[in-house]
Nucleic acid binder design. Structure first.
Lengths: 339, 339
DNA sequence: TCACTTTTCCAAAACGTTTTGGGAGTAAAT
DNA sequence: ATTTACTCCCAAAACGTTTTGGAAAAGTGA
């Protein structure tokens, strides 16, 4: 059986209190005693029972993240990287990460409420914020600590890290305009996703700022998957007046669009330019490689996690609302317009 | 503050014991008392303190899964789905899922040892088994409950679910041979991964069984990524005597191989046939769609999780070692050989 | 009435830790 | 010789639950 403080105390001939305090490094324990306690603890292979510690400290030292899965067969190249960022930051601070997956809606809200009520976790990490985000409303109402990757419509009076998607799209559009493109199409994402809004906004406003028309027929909405990217690009390309550039809301759809272009015997980056957003690993290794906006997902995961840990430990948060400036990664899938 | 049994007991005028037993459904509580306890618990919004319960029950009701991440920017379409399967099964049984990510090696082993020593979790789920799997050795040595997705070299005297990859590859090769292919190449994976072994074995043995030569020059090893698939397929295609079919160890490499073929102006499924393994979502929606072996990752996740929960609860495991028969999904990327 | 069973209840212990609020003993200062 | 200060220690309470081992009260059958 696992050793306890009590056993150490018996062996050392001191009280449990003293043993506890010796190991915790309090100064009201003599060095001799401390050394002896350490020695015996070592011998017995003592490990504190963290459940007992958690009970006494009234903390679970656990963070929750509920991944929104839009389809049963979900497979988002994005989440695994984010998870790694969050998980490593959590581990570094001695926190556990409790992960579950729910599809948005009732099930998801129930998961949040249950986790809050059962006090299983100390805080939440919310990912991929939505326009009216029930998760954030629940957390705010319960006054439960959390940090988000992304912002919401309305009061962003909570901890978040976000990339400035609007600016990201401005960089993309300006890059394409500079290459001579005038007819740009946009593969949008469901408008309840905040990042989709920002990206659409960045797209249209930059066009307008450049004095270019915003043709609603060239703005199609997909579900972020490669398949939808393929389908929607097909629709655009089969028009009598196809766009010369397709700006996708994310890399997956851009990759799908690329294959649609190639299927029609056209050359990506020459006949049609294509851009993405996220800079997932396949973007770099696609053929041609994909021009996209880099999003440091791992780093954002770390930041969000660190923030929320800081806040539950009452530490000062120097910068509770962080918006990162994106950078454009120009690769082969975007090139000068052909005339 | 959150209500406790003590408060309910005071309100009801009964002991804490009785309240606890009333809520737990013991029969030595009168129906009248039970109703009253329930009523008051409801009014106070009572939720049991899960940490206290865990301390008393000497269980953490938590499962650990450490995802092996081979690169910092890892993004495996596979894990998210597996995670969903495991997570949902765990949630259904009231278990929490503790997730972390480590790259294989010392860090990973340390994570296992730490989790075991600190008794943070009741059991482990091991994923993507390896030839000499240090994780499994550690768990066995510690006599710690676990279940694996995959087998190991040597004694498989532990809980596992695996798909019969060897059979999967037999199906693939026989399909291609039936289509007239004689020169088959294989994109293998690092041989310390068990599934890579099985797949390679299935490939070579089926060729031999069919009386076809196994040309070592046509067997190249990659890291499972799309990029490596692309590179290695390039090497094969640029040979003076290129293969007519490329059998990839997984879908990601197959997808990479497809783009290499297309880059050379060849038609996948016509000039060169390509097959994968896993049946990840992009496989279906690739162009052409990818012939592959279906792997029910979500379901396997559920099964593995259920198994390990059963075992820590002392329940009978009807089938502690499960090998699933795979099914071949024939799509457009494989076609008759051209002569 | 007695013996026996059934119903209903509960005090106390246990899980293993940390914190609180001292107290004893010794050394230094007055 | 007394006060003050410091060092080292610890009993007890607390965190909130479940389990153990009865015991009192009520009912039953003779």
């Amino acid at each position: 059986m696992a050793a306890t403080l009590k056993e150490i105390a018996q062996r050392v001939g001191k009280s449990v209190t003293t043993v506890s305090r010796a190991l915790a490094g309090y100064s009201d324990v003599s060095e001799a005693t401390r050394a002896q306690v350490r020695q015996v603890a070592q011998e017995l292979g003592y490990e504190p029972n963290i459940t007992a510690r958690r009970l006494q400290k009234r903390r679970t030292e656990t963070l929750a993240i509920v991944l929104p899965t839009y389809s049963p067969r979900f497979s988002d190249p994005f989440f695994s990287e984010f998870l790694a960022g969050v998980g490593n930051a959590a581990a570094a601070e001695g926190y556990d990460l409790l992960v579950s997956t729910r599809s948005p809606g009732d099930e998801e809200e129930k998961a949040y409420r249950d986790l809050i009520r059962s006090r299983r976790v100390d805080a939440f990490i919310v990912v991929r914020t939505r326009l009216h985000d029930a998760r954030i409303e629940i957390l705010k109402a319960a006054n439960f600590p959390f940090a988000a990757f992304g912002r919401i419509e309305g009061d962003n009076d909570f901890l978040f890290v976000d990339e400035d998607s609007e600016l990201g799209l401005r960089l993309v559009v300006e890059h394409l305009v500079k290459l001579g493109h005038r007819r740009l199409a946009f593969l949008a994402a469901p408008p309840d996703l905040m990042f989709a809004r920002y990206r659409l906004k960045g797209f249209t406003e930059t066009l307008q700022a450049r004095g270019l028309p915003v043709d609603p027929e060239l703005i199609l909405t997909g579900d972020l998957s490669q398949r939808h990217g393929h389908q929607l690009a097909g629709i655009l390309l089969d028009r009598p007046d196809p766009p010369t550039a397709i700006v996708a809301c994310n890399d997956l759809m851009a990759l799908g669009a690329m294959s649609a272009v190639q299927n029609r015997g056209l050359k990506v980056g020459y006949d049609v330019s294509i851009t993405g957003f996220d800079d997932i690993p396949p973007a770099e290794h696609a053929h041609p490689s994909l021009t996209t906006v880099h999003q440091p997902v791992y780093k954002i995961g770390k930041m969000v996690c660190q923030m929320v840990i800081d806040v539950i430990n009452g530490r000062e948060i120097p910068n509770p609302q962080i918006t990162l400036a994106p950078s454009l990664v120009i690769r082969q899938s975007s090139g000068p317009v052909q005339i």
